[in-house]
Each structure stands twice: as structure tokens, then as C-alpha cells.
Simulated scan of single mutants.
Amino acid sequence: MIWPAHLPVRSVRFARPTNQLDAIVAFYRDAIGLPEIGRFEDHDGYTGVMLGLPGEGYHLEFTSHVDGVSGEAPTRDNLLVFYIDDQAALERLIERMRSYGHTPVPPENPYWEKGGVAYEDPDGWGVIFMNMVEHRRLLD
């Protein structure tokens, strides 16, 4: 696929508010293992943490505001999906999540049960770890 010339994007950030910044960071950084690539404190009332994805061209930003924010997922089908190539790596990740006290939950969409494992972060947003080989097989 060729990237459109009219859209010279260098990186993408997915930003989301939360009232539970410490718990969210513990889930994504500590349990999942995303590296922390930056943070800021009290910038016009906002505090935030950026967590890197592969290549750091894509990252997540979680923010909280001194007056509070709505960080709850609007539906159980609001998802962040990580595609994992190796079944053994997926199993190690499931064990890691268990060691941090996180247990899988049934996904809203049953498609994700076919090779994937679903979790909810502290705000109720879905996180799916999907076996990429199984995903490709299901699409064929």
C-alpha cells in the first residue's frame, strides 16, 4: 500500500482522558509492557503520560484534568487491538496479564474469541490480543 501524498503524517497519537491515570498507566505500561516515552504534569490543569508502540511513530496518550474528565468507554466494543504473530508470545502475554491480576473478559463481538483474548482496562475500554495467523485465516 502506498501512503497518500496529500497526507504527510509523521506519527499518530491516540489520546484519551481518564480519572484513573495511575491505574491506566499501570495497566498499559506495567501489565502490558508498553514503554513510557513521555509525561507532563499540570499543563493548564492537565497531567498526561505517553506510552509508545513499536517504532514510537504510534503512541497512546492518557490525560487527566484537575476538574475530572469522562474516561469511561461508551460501549464494550471500543477496542484497542494488538495483533500478535506468535502463539507462544500470545500465551506469554496472557500469563503476564494474569501475573498482574488481570483476567480475560468475554468480548462484545464474538469474532475476537476466535484466536483472541479480551481484557478491560480500568476505565472499561477493551483491549484485544489477537493471534495474527488466526485473524488472517478467518479473513480468507
Rank of each mutant, 00 (worst) to 15 (best):
Y58K: 12
V105T: 14
L138W: 11
A88W: 10
E41R: 12
M132P: 12
D86Y: 01
F82K: 03
L21W: 07
S99M: 05
P106G: 02
P107D: 06
L79N: 13
A23C: 07
L79V: 12
D42A: 10
T75D: 14
E108M: 04
A73N: 09
D86Q: 02
H43I: 15
D86K: 06
W3A: 11
I94F: 09
D42F: 04
F62S: 03
A15E: 03
E108A: 09
Y58H: 10
D86W: 03
M1H: 13
E113T: 13
V117P: 03
S99I: 05
Y100F: 09
G45A: 05
Q87H: 14
G101R: 04
L79M: 12
E108H: 06
P122A: 01
H59E: 07
K114C: 12
I128V: 10
N78S: 15
Y111L: 14
P104R: 01
F40T: 08
P122G: 01
D42T: 02
Q20T: 08
D42L: 11
S70E: 15
I32W: 01
E91D: 15
T103P: 13
L51W: 00
L80P: 12
Y111N: 14
H59Q: 10
F62I: 03
Y83E: 11
N78G: 07
E61A: 06
G55F: 13
V25Y: 00
G124D: 07
G45I: 08
P74C: 01
S11M: 08
Y111D: 10
Q20F: 06
I94P: 02
Q87L: 14
G101A: 05
Y100N: 12
P74T: 04
A23E: 10
N109Q: 14
H65G: 01
M50K: 10
A31H: 00
P110C: 02
M130Y: 02
D44V: 09
H6W: 13
H6V: 15
D44I: 09
N78Y: 13
F129M: 09
S70A: 15
N131I: 06
A73L: 07
L80M: 13
P104D: 00
E91P: 07
V25G: 03
S70H: 14
A88I: 12
G45L: 05
A15C: 11
G48V: 03
Y83S: 09
L51C: 11
Q87G: 15
Y46F: 08
Y100C: 11
G116N: 06
E134V: 14
L34C: 05
